[in-house]
Design a binder for these strands. Structure first.
Length: 230
DNA sequence: CGTGCGATCCGCT
DNA sequence: GCGGATCGCACGT
């Protein structure tokens, strides 16, 4: 494989915000269509290279909505095109776009991307020496390709946290708000799919989509049950 | 490059 | 209580 040349700021075209109707479809249809699109927030913009789909209640054991509506997953039952942000493993945030019409509870997890704008701002967010669980320790550098390679890293790069749960990404959001841009859709010939990462059930459902050969796609990790110290 | 482990909070059973 | 849509680091190959 040839040398990787990082993309920069998406040129003029593709800056339009995606229509809400884009997300009013089943998650496994939305996910591949999102590859090559751009999520922007403040100074940082990320071109999406890897997306996972999660289905509505009862249909998908791996989905946070599988057992129905709860306070945590309520946003997933809301209008499409909004952000569902959840907290996991005691230290990480991950972001999804809500899919399907209101009331149905489905979404797509943003698993990885390439920082195409605000590389330095994104890198700065990786150094959090005062936090109990820094994503990067002091004195370490993060390569550009790793800045948004993985769902929790992507959330950090974009400055997404608890307060963005429910944010509407199709509403424009202003120059500093969260907004999902058209970007450049990826040719279907370069899209691959396979089992989802890190899920303990329905691991065989091939609802993880990525851009073939893109180095910012996260490494596949099988689910491993964890045991507790003590 | 692969495997193994610890960190650390929260929702749900 | 238990396990989780994860990650960085140490260590072996």
């Amino acid at each position: 494989m040839g040398e990787w040349i990082p993309r920069r700021q998406p040129s003029g075209t593709g800056e339009r915000v995606l229509d809400r109707e884009f997300f009013e479809r089943p998650a496994p249809e939305v996910a591949p269509d999102l590859l090559g699109r751009v999520l922007a927030h403040g100074p940082v913009a990320v071109r999406l290279t890897e997306i996972e789909a999660y289905g509505p209640p009862g249909s998908d054991p791996a989905s946070h909505t599988y057992r129905g509506r709860t306070p945590r997953n309520a946003v997933m039952f809301g209008p499409p095109g909004h952000l569902y942000v959840y907290f996991t493993y005691g230290m990480h945030y991950c972001a999804n776009f809500v899919c399907l019409p209101e009331g149905l509870g489905s979404g797509v997890l943003l698993r990885a991307g390439e920082v195409v704008r605000g590389v330095e701002a994104a890198r700065t967010r990786r150094h959090r020496p005062s936090t109990a669980a820094p994503l990067t320790g002091p004195g370490r550098t993060v390569t550009e390709r790793d800045l948004a390679r993985g769902p929790a890293r992507l959330a950090v790069a974009l400055g997404i946290g608890r307060e963005h749960n429910g944010a509407d990404c199709c509403a424009g959001g202003g120059p500093d708000g969260l907004r999902v841009l058209e970007g450049e859709p990826v040719d279907s010939a370069s899209i691959r799919c396979g089992p989802r990462t890190g899920v303990s059930s329905a691991a065989d459902t091939p609802w993880r989509f990525w851009i073939d050969g893109d180095p910012t796609v996260s490494p596949y990790r099988r689910h491993v049950p964890r045991t507790r110290p003590g």
